[in-house]
Write a protein that binds this DNA or RNA. Structure first.
Ligand code: SF4
Ligand code: SF4
Lengths: 141, 141
DNA sequence: TTAATTTCGGATAAAAGAGTCTTTAATTCT
DNA sequence: AGAATTAAAGACTCTTTTATCCGAAATTAA
């Protein structure tokens, strides 16, 4: 098990890659797929989820491809995770016991809740531009 | 995507259920499965992972079944998660970028690392007995 | 207008996870 | 010793995720 699905990882890495490209033009998905070693057809499908949510924008045809749908400061990792994997990981209890929740919390409830909230905030507070500006610390691929 | 696999959830819930039972005898897996609404044959397979790691102990035959392999104070949620889902969630970076890690960390690395460590510690510090002792706060099933 | 390019959309295939079934081995009770 | 019970083990099916394939639609360039 992993926290994020493979689709989600692919989406994140693509978004980071696009944010990393200086120009404002469309980049063919095939090019990104090759660069990041992601199956191209699969990536196409994943990116559709992001374009539908305006996180990215796409264009068909000769000069077409994909690019960020807004400026990289305005896209957080949370946005991308939510668009692809949904909000489950930020909401669901990991024990998922019968009769659980706020009314009858198990002893684990509070620490788990804050942990989950932390994860959400951490991702909300990390924008693509932040990652790029500090990119000297790692190869962001 | 979920943090833990379904197998792991089943394992955790079974361990909690066993810890909750007062006696020291073996409980048939079929009985637990019925009580917790888990497919019995599937649960049998999952529990084998726990018995192999001595977290639980099993006995075949008429008075057979399964029970905790040691006292509930000595079993942490971490032990169970590790036995079933492995250590990936405590180790792997969630971005899993090329060339990542301690030497060339991305800007996200430190916060992610501490988050991951927190999760591990949280689970290590929660024993089955702790959950049971505070069980009045929730139905532990 | 035609040819080339590139995403979109739906169908299909492969792999992994979850769940089922059957047989065998161990244990208890009579 | 024999019958009943219960976990172990392996084969098998079903579902979800991941990946591939192909034709259609949109866009550009000539
Ligand atoms: S009480 Fe909260 S933390 Fe505990 S099992 Fe239920 S939802 Fe999860
Ligand atoms: S540097 Fe660390 S946090 Fe960042 S992608 Fe790599 S392993 Fe993950």
């Amino acid at each position: 098990m992993a926290l994020l699905s493979k689709s989600c990882l692919y989406g994140l890495r693509t978004a980071i890659y696009c944010a990393h490209q200086s120009g404002n033009g469309y980049i063919p998905i095939s090019e990104i797929a090759k660069e990041l070693e992601i199956p191209a057809d699969f990536l196409t499908k994943i990116l559709q989820k992001l374009t539908r949510k305006k996180i990215m924008s796409s264009l068909r045809g000769v000069k077409g491809g994909i690019k960020l749908g807004k400026s990289s400061e305005k896209i957080s990792l949370y946005d991308i995770v939510q668009a692809i994997d949904g909000e489950t990981i930020f909401r669901k209890c990991f024990l998922d016991l019968e009769g659980c929740g706020e009314e009858t919390p198990c002893p684990f409830h509070e620490s788990w809740k804050s942990y989950r909230t932390d994860l959400g905030n951490m991702l909300k507070n990390t924008s693509l531009s932040y990652l790029i500006e500090n990119r000297k610390y790692a190869r962001l691929k």
